[in-house]
């Protein structure tokens, strides 16, 4: 019976958390549509998420594109399908790897820093202080981060797509002996607008989830430095899991349309 009870507790806990995260998100989104808008804060978050994540996202995208070309070559050359490599690289990157890899990297970078910053503000009573100064902390802290996450991740992924395809191109042309012109031609011949768009939609969803997890766990952190540390871990872990989960759901959504 103890076994069943523990399953029940876990399920109840999951449902309660889902509910409180949803309420948290709904409240922040509702507030973000009403004035006053904190342009300064939104701008700062956009720069932090979009600009300062460029090196880490660019680097991971580059190596992913490179290894993708190399691995596809190893497999495809066995049945003389090397000519499919440009297409495989560009579709894998735009549809799948660009958004997921950028999402996971940003979850580590931004999700963690949001949770740590908001968590520290919580345990040092800065969030209470905001309230006493007639400022809604949900609107001042959470809404700008959600907006910046949703808008900046697609832009980051667009850059990651380009760099990833470039990585595949460099390896194919310089190591595998492809002709540069025909490689580029093949890259774009079979690429459809929907491939890129579905990747960008994913990116926006991921950006929202990353910011939501960072803010939610930070906002609810308790008990000093240890609590903030736990909140940071939780933010990164839950964001990463939700990214992979929603990745499947969004893919299924786009896939079943065609």
């Amino acid at each position: 019976m103890g076994f069943l009870a523990s399953i029940g507790r876990a399920v109840l806990h999951l449902l309660a958390t889902t509910g409180s995260v949803s309420l948290f998100a709904a409240q922040a989104l509702a507030l973000s549509t009403r004035p006053p808008w904190h342009w300064r804060l939104i701008g700062r978050q956009m720069i932090d998420i979009g600009y300062y994540s460029l090196p880490v996202v660019g680097m991971t995208a580059l190596f992913t594109g490179m290894v993708l070309a190399l691995q596809s070559y190893t497999g495809f050359s066995r049945f003389a399908a090397d000519s499919a490599i440009p297409t495989v690289v560009v579709i894998s990157i735009t549809r799948e790897l660009g958004p997921v890899i950028a999402g996971l990297m940003v979850a580590g970078r931004i999700g963690a820093s949001m949770a740590a910053e908001i968590g520290t503000m919580r345990v040092t009573e800065q969030i209470d202080a905001l309230t006493t100064l007639s400022t809604n902390p949900m609107k001042y802290l959470v809404a700008p981060r959600l907006l910046a996450g949703m808008t900046m991740l697609p832009l980051l992924v667009l850059v990651a797509d380009a760099i990833g395809v470039f990585g595949g191109y460099v390896v194919s042309v310089h190591k595998l002996g492809f002709n540069p012109t025909s490689y580029l031609k093949r890259t774009f011949d079979y690429l459809q607008v929907m491939d890129v768009v579905s990747g960008l939609v994913k990116a926006s969803v991921f950006g929202f989830l990353i910011a939501l997890m960072g803010c939610y766990h930070g906002y609810r952190s308790r008990g000093g430095a240890q609590g903030v540390g736990a909140a940071t871990t939780q933010a990164v872990v839950t964001a990463s899991i939700l990214i992979l989960l929603s990745n499947y759901l969004v893919t299924e959504l786009f896939f079943s349309r065609r």
Binding site: M121, T124, E125, Q126, D128, A129, T132, L133, S134, T135
Partner: peptide, 25 residues
């Protein structure tokens, strides 16, 4: 309200901390 630990916003300079309620509120 004067909080026990001060609860100053560490991302803002001192004057903006003091002016916060006037500007935001």
């Amino acid at each position: 309200m004067l909080f026990q630990g001060g609860a100053l916003f560490d991302s803002l300079p001192v004057w903006e901390n003091v002016a916060f309620g006037l500007i935001q509120g």
